[in-house]
């Protein structure tokens, strides 16, 4: 049977992995290549790198990191951050990414999702959605690292991205991100139930029960977490062991 995936997420800036709370207050977590190897050793199912570099001058750094990781780690690598054109997708794939995550640019230019998936296949196009609750059972899409409201309904937006050719949705709750109080399970459930494509739950993991809840209650196909792994609270192995104990199919 297909296993639910555990995906450690590495937010990278200036060549370092960092982690913030609700998209601010960055804390250094170490060298990305070293961290990627550690998670691979621990049995991570995939790795996601988000280039959160503000200045475009430093864009080259992420390519060198991905190249180095891809030489040593033989699991799927997703890279996002600053992807604006089809050429950006191509460059990341050539550097060694298997999937490319598109966030703000999907809102600014939805045709990018259609063009990139038509060219490289929907299997490598992930659309990242940052959502904030605006009313009971209602979430709005935000862009530019959570600073800009779009007026778009998150569930409807996810459906549109699926139609345009996204192969997967990376869904982050901005209300929960960095809070360590668990995923927004209602948001996760609403999006996954509305889609045919896989959904990765993100934002808010503080313990292993939260990961299991994301799958069992949220219905997520994969769960993404950062700080619980970066700062040594848990290993990926421990997470899998815990989830298996709750009857969730995992890759051991």
């Amino acid at each position: 049977m297909l296993a639910k995936r555990i995906i450690p997420c590495l937010d990278v800036t200036a060549g370092r992995v960092v982690k913030g709370v609700s998209f601010v207050e960055l804390r250094d977590a170490g060298d990305p290549v070293e961290i990627a190897r550690r998670y691979d050793d621990q049995g991570a199912d995939e790795l996601t790198f988000l280039d959160i570099t503000a200045s475009s001058d430093d864009r080259g750094i992420i390519f060198r990191i991905i190249e180095q990781v891809a030489e040593q780690v033989f699991i799927p690598l997703t890279v996002g951050g600053g992807v604006r054109e089809v050429q950006d997708v191509r460059n990341l794939l050539n550097a060694g990414a298997d999937k490319v995550s598109i966030n703000t640019s999907a809102v600014v230019n939805p045709q990018l999702v259609a063009d990139a998936s038509a060219r490289y296949g929907s299997q490598c196009i992930v659309v990242a959605i940052d959502a904030k609750q605006v009313a009971p059972g209602k979430w709005e899409v935000f862009t530019h690292g959570g600073r800009k409201a779009t007026g778009l309904d998150a569930v409807e937006w996810a459906k549109k991205m699926q139609t345009l050719g996204a192969g997967e949705i990376l869904l982050t709750s901005m209300d929960k991100d960095g809070q360590k109080s668990g995923f927004d399970l209602a948001l996760t459930r609403a999006v996954t139930d509305a889609l045919e494509i896989p959904v990765i739950a993100s934002g808010g993991v503080g313990n292993l029960q939260h990961l299991a809840d994301g799958v069992k209650q949220g219905g997520a196909d994969a769960v993404l977490a950062a700080s619980i792994f970066h700062f040594g609270e848990y290993t990926v192995q421990q997470a899998k062991h815990f989830m298996a104990g709750q009857g969730i199919e995992v890759r051991s």
Partner: peptide, 16 residues
């Protein structure tokens, strides 16, 4: 699946 959960397409991830 056997529990009635939706199986997504593409079939994506680690399978036996």
């Amino acid at each position: 699946d056997a529990q009635g959960n939706k199986l997504k397409v593409p079939h994506m991830g680690w399978n036996q």
